[in-house]
Amino acid sequence: MDCRDVKEHLSEYVDEMLPEKEASEIKDHLARCADCLGEYESTLKIIKHMNEMETIDAPAEFLEKVTARLEKRFSFGGWLRRLFVPLRVKLPLELAGIAAAVALLVYVFGVRDGRDLYEVTISMSGERGQTIVVPEKPGEKRDEPKRRDKKGGERSPSLEEVIRAAGWRIVSTERCEDSNIPASMIVELPADEYQDLLGELNRLGVVETRPSPVFEEEQDVIKVKIVVQNAGP
């Protein structure tokens, strides 16, 4: 083993990482080569010094600094991570969100519309087979049903004619298939003319009142569904 080989393996020799045979050859070489021995001793000295080097500790406020950075990361990361939550969490959340949005839309358009349409049942019967049931206005005394005998009299105006004559708008009409007489109709009228509607209906036949809708103060136009019962001939 020459000087170059020894220098190449000196590091492993110092750490006793060489096989016994090679270690023995190096040991023999060092015993007779001052130059390589000098290298060996120098290596040992440096390693010894390095082993004994002072351990440098972090500054006193190190923990606080790391904690502050972690807090920042947790708060921002927490917000960020919520955007990337696992699908098993995100999907139900999204579904709940969609359900909430649908519920809101139904409330805004559906329920609101339902409020405008005072779905009251009005029955028409009597001699012309018409009993009209309309909702009772809050606070209004329940009128005795009025019965008018139209027999032998001149032709009474139809429900549609009465409505039109009063200037109210018929939004839609459902008719009996066989008689073409209205089974129900939706009428749009100013809220403060509701009493007038009841009066007109009273003149047409027996009107039975039912619990009345409560009009909202700002509501100026209402829709009333008039259901005609026993409307057959």
Partner: peptide, 23 residues
């Protein structure tokens, strides 16, 4: 922290750099 900081300091040879690196 001592172990990590010392390794950082001995590898970088600069105290402030070691501080940032260990954090």
């Amino acid at each position: 922290k001592r172990l990590v900081f010392n390794l950082c300091y001995r590898s970088l040879g600069d105290y402030d750099e070691a501080d940032d690196c260990a954090q």
